[in-house]
Design a protein around this nucleic acid. Structure first.
Lengths: 198, 198
DNA sequence: GACTTTACAAAATACTCATGATTGTCAACA
DNA sequence: TGTTGACAATCATGAGTATTTTGTAAAGTC
């Protein structure tokens, strides 16, 4: 019989990841010690190993958790604006740009294939494609819920394009986040309109 | 009186940069020795120092020359197709993607702010913004020569956007270069049409 | 039973020192 | 003008060693 993971075990795992996250954000992944993570999470070092296998496994789990956090934020931003394409997309883009500005973890993950010398990357089999794929999910869900049906091809192109542009503006900002968000929202609007008109 | 640089001096400088380029492409910048560059260029080591100041200056000059080469290629691809937006833009995009696939130097420069561990980057104050600005020049020139006048804002946005997307597809390819080039050309067409219709 | 503690080998990292190669600069030379 | 040879200063390399950290196991505790 498969043991359902008990709440306190989930809490333990969450505490470990949260500790790792905090240490990574403040001191950088290179300086994160398994013993420090354990201490901060209030568990023994051995438990960290039992739960995540080791340093690499912990990095993985941390990245996955961070991606989940981030994608949830995107979803929230989108659905807070109903079917209004411009404001919904602008909000989602804005959220992403702000998040990347504030949160080094998500920035590293989003721009990971581009390297940067971050030592965390050595442990992360490039995740930027994963995040980008994950970020597409709430966008597609939102489109399905609020927009008239469009050819899948057009929709995925629009989504892929806006995601790439957001990442590009994280790496090399052009204007303030707000203006960029507006411009990209306008672009998406244009792509959707064009698709609707065949 | 300002001395006009004589042809043989230009030739010398070109030979030095060409030598540096060849060595960088084949062995990587880290393994490039000033003495080897001089030898391959057929000049003394001292001349290399006189002309470019040192290793950093040589890297700069090499990057600038490479950017010039690249931008010339983009211009050529564009103007080979007259005013046909779709095929001209597609050709330029295609050229860039192919160039990045074959030429490690231009790839490093184009994606430089994104790092990667290339030691050349230590000597290059991030050039990707420079290339992107430079790449915009032939695009704007071509548009001015072949397209009906459009609001400058719309045009620069379209150009900036397509350049960012090309770089994104270099970093994280989605489909074969040809398909990506077509898709981006279509996007540009859309942006220009939308601008024309206000 | 799940977790902690203790113990320990293996691996990674940091430090030191010595050696050699390379850079950057100079002045004499062709 | 450009080359050559000489030079100190800097940088990279490698060996050797110490220290830290990882990863694993077993025994102990609630």
């Amino acid at each position: 019989m498969l043991t359902v993971s008990r709440p306190d075990r989930d809490a333990t795992r969450a505490a470990i990841v949260a500790a790792a996250r905090q240490l990574t954000v403040t001191r950088g992944w290179a300086a994160v010690r398994m013993s420090t993570v354990a201490e901060l999470a209030g568990v023994s070092r051995q438990t960290v190993y039992n739960e995540y296998g080791g340093r690499a496994g912990l990095a993985d789990a941390m990245a996955d958790a961070e991606i989940q956090r981030f994608v949830a934020g995107v979803r929230e931003a989108l659905f807070a604006h109903g079917g209004q394409v411009r404001s919904a997309v602008a909000a989602a883009v804005r959220f992403t740009l702000d998040e990347a500005a504030v949160n080094p973890l998500i920035r590293v993950i989003l721009t990971s294939s581009r390297g940067g010398a971050d030592p965390l990357l050595a442990y992360l089999t490039t995740r930027s494609d994963v995040v980008m794929a994950q970020a597409a999910v709430p966008l597609l869900e939102w489109a399905a819920a609020h927009l008239p049906p469009l050819p899948a091809e057009d929709l995925t192109f629009a989504v892929d394009t806006v995601i790439r542009l957001v990442v590009s503006h994280i790496v090399l900002p052009l204007r303030p986040a707000e203006q960029t968000a507006d411009a990209l929202a306008g672009l998406v609007l244009l792509l959707l309109e064009a698709s609707r008109r065949h």
